[in-house]
Design a protein around this nucleic acid. Structure first.
Lengths: 212, 212
DNA sequence: TAGATTGTTAATCGATTAACAATC
DNA sequence: TAGATTGTTAATCGATTAACAATC
């Protein structure tokens, strides 16, 4: 279970997890690589290679056990331990993410939210009260967190990330349109919404040129 | 300019665009593949291959012209024509995206926002008024759009996407945790926030196991 | 046992890296 | 001309696909 898994496979794990959850809801006990391939849009061969890469096990002539595999991938994805999060930057997006939380099936818990504007301090966002960023260190010292959600301007992101790193944070969910540079023991996952929309725009243009 | 560009290269275009914009702000006229590689975290060789793949041109002994290349990639990304968007689902995320819009450097214009809850109809989100989803067809017939932003529950996403497709929408920016199935002339880009967070969770777990 | 489907090895494909000649 | 850096060809690497023997 602790062997190295190639990055392309890792990036597909959440998708597999999502479909296995769905199959579990539908009370399907086993799923063949062919069926799973159809659902995910991959080839059956790739599904089998992936399963082998992440250490899953199936039953010949029968397929993969849905519940067992869902649990197994869940463990890989760290679903077994609750992750504490803090959100930095209470703009529209930051607030949406905090409120949205129920969406993220359990396993995540937002423990504090921060903003640098004094006028926002004290504001209630769901069950949490916005705290001033100047109190970041003391709040995190008292109540350490695993993940910081960065929903702040690009210009402030790098510096804030370093500050959060010094507070012990090692996971960064970055919504600011910059690439963060942090020590190797930090993990960063970017959600670059602007780039995502640009990609869609590119594809739209391509299709328009080719199809008609 | 209309030649086929491999997908891995296309996905890096927005990043190149972002760095070139930054260099332009700093009044840097030329950038070498080596420098650009340092910024983006790629190798110089890959940068040169990428540039060749998307049809960019540099000057030997000098590097790539920043402004020209920024404009060129901008054209590829469809920055030259304004894209009209409608947002379907006025939950926290939908509202955040509408308000956030200024963030997306010009080139996008939200023309209408919808929700299926009558109680939300009439609500003002920035300069727009929430319309009931039952009016989708008539609104889009009068004022066609290029892109639909789907910020609604997974259970409703596929059906809504098909309905939007029938209204002439071909670009889908999908925030619902499902994979959409649409005709080939539609383009879908997913923003699966839950999966993104799971990926971070995975990496966090890996590092915890290896580092200490 | 027969049928189905995995697990695994080999073949292919494409992306990245390396090297260097062309040229500004 | 000399130095720098691109453009491009070749080599490597890794991911995906194909094939089939193992086995439930």
């Amino acid at each position: 279970m602790s062997a190295y898994i190639p990055d392309p496979v890792v990036k597909r794990l959440p998708m597999y997890y999502r479909y296995l959850k769905e199959l579990e809801r539908n009370n399907q006990m086993f799923i063949s690589s062919t069926e799973l391939a159809k659902l995910t849009g991959l080839t059956a061969s790739q599904v089998r290679q992936d399963v082998n890469a992440f250490g899953g096990e199936g039953r010949q002539g029968c397929g993969y056990p849905v519940i067992e595999m869902r649990k197994y991938i869940g463990k890989l994805l760290g679903k077994t331990t609750v992750k504490k999060m803090v959100v930095v930057g209470m703009g529209n997006l930051g607030r949406a993410i905090v409120r949205y939380e129920a969406f993220f099936h359990d396993g995540y818990q937002t423990s504090a939210v921060f903003d640098c504007q004094s006028q926002k301090t004290g504001l209630k966002i769901g069950p949490l009260t916005v705290q001033h960023i100047r109190d970041l260190e003391s709040v995190l010292a008292e109540n350490p967190a695993d993940i910081a959600v960065l929903t702040l301007p690009a210009s402030a992101a790098q510096e804030m990330a370093e500050r959060l790193y010094r507070c012990g944070i090692r996971g960064f969910w970055n919504f600011a349109p910059v690439d963060l540079h942090l020590p190797d023991d930090a993990s960063v996952v970017n959600v670059h919404l602007d780039e995502s929309l640009e990609l869609l725009s590119y594809r739209l243009n391509q299709k328009k040129r080719i199809q008609p």
